[in-house]
Write a protein that binds this DNA or RNA. Structure first.
Lengths: 231, 231
DNA sequence: CTTAAGCATTAGATTCGTCTAATCCCACTC
DNA sequence: GAGTGGGATTAGACGAATCTAATGCTTAAG
């Protein structure tokens, strides 16, 4: 039996791992989970003993296939819950995260099954993030182009907003940047900010690179931009 | 902040306390929660230190008003969840207990609020047990007459089935003994079993006293039985 | 009034997840 | 190739919740 804590660490590693091919550093995990580095180190030892991560001292860890399966199960729970809370309980897109973060460790397979059924087996959650299937097959989380890669003049439609900071999320929501939004890239400034105009004339939003990296986009039909070619 | 474990103990004391006016014995708590007696003792020490129970060594404990409020909050969560799982997620009446037992500790006030609203602020859960109000006012859980107090010939309607054993519950469900069922008491045998006939002609069911004590009933209109007079 | 049976509690140890303080590696600079 | 800065790990401790084994109350029966 795996503790909720272990599930948290595995999910964290999963999230960090999709950012790059490098092994995940202890300090990143510690930061994300708000614990000290020694705590993360000792948990990595336990996870390695159980064969859930591969560890190279002083380098970092990587999920083993078994570890990834556990992570995918937790991620599936999380994203199904976010979808359910939004669709059925009227939660706001930006405020579901904490609730799902707690409940994801405590729902039964039965609950998962019923929720998935009620939602008609959704493929993505309200943020546009893909929901792992019941079979827990690996998902390509990096698929697609992000807003940092866009160039001026691109006409794009938002696919995913993978940001997880609730304040940032609420701001983007308020500004109208949600999955499905169409926008035009107005300026890609060399100081690390992208300005986009909402296609429905709702104004312009400036987005720093750190956030733009979490916004996945597709070209609108008829685009002449480079975003899609790069994908 | 209270741990989920502490909440579990407080709920257990609450459940046991409603069975009699005596202080609740350590061993009963230990049995109910499936831990050893020393474990229960040491938890009682912690709860007493926090002012959640009043403890008399070698005698037992009683919830303080603060302890009862915490217990009521947990019970409210539990019963709302049971209702929600049954009404909205299609769970069976008899199988909701475990799911609710885990989730009750992890839902937010926001979740509680939304669920209560969606269900239109229900007064009782699917077992007929009363759901504490949002204000967490004490509830009279012993209100009503139970099936052990019935006499032959009584025509009764089932109000609550407070049993918590899932197998027994499933059996009663299968047999048609659910809140709302009308029945006639056929025999009160001196060996500790009550036989009742379902009013809709679905046959007869024999119920041992231990179970009958968990079945709360009201007289049907026109009854000549003694059950209601006793109340 | 004594005593044995039956709970309850104390003693002491374990596991998990966490911390702080101390030490250790590694990579980069000079 | 020596030194140093910074992240990683080891050392040691702690609180929560649990266990087993030993001891201590309480009470009801003689």
């Amino acid at each position: 039996m795996l503790s909720a804590k272990m599930e948290d660490y595995l999910k964290a590693i999963y999230e960090l791992q999709r950012e790059s091919d490098e092994p995940v550093a202890t300090s990143r995990i510690a930061d994300l989970l708000d614990v000290t580095a020694p705590t993360a180190t000792s948990m990595m030892e336990s996870l390695a003993e159980r064969g859930l991560v591969e560890r190279e001292k002083y380098k970092g860890v990587r999920l083993t296939p078994e570890g990834e399966t556990v992570a995918l199960e937790v991620v599936r729970h999380h994203r199904l819950l976010e979808t359910y809370l939004t669709e059925e309980l009227g939660y706001d897109w930006a405020e579901v995260h904490d609730e799902a973060d707690r409940l994801e460790h405590h729902i039964s397979e039965e609950f998962e099954r019923r929720v998935a059924e009620m939602l008609d087996d959704p493929a993505v959650d309200p943020h546009g993030d893909p929901i792992p299937t019941d079979a827990l097959d690996p998902v390509d989380e990096t698929a697609g182009t992000t807003l940092v890669e866009a160039t001026e003049g691109d006409r794009l439609v938002v696919q995913r907003v993978s940001d997880r900071d609730p304040e940032e999320l609420a701001y983007l929501d308020e500004a109208g940047i949600v999955p499905g939004t169409e926008l035009v890239v107005e300026e890609v400034a060399p100081i690390g900010v992208v300005s986009v105009a909402l296609a429905d004339g709702e104004g312009t939003v400036s987005i720093p690179d750190a956030v733009a990296r979490t916004i996945f986009v597709d070209a609108t039909d008829g685009s002449t931009g480079s975003a899609t070619e790069a994908a």
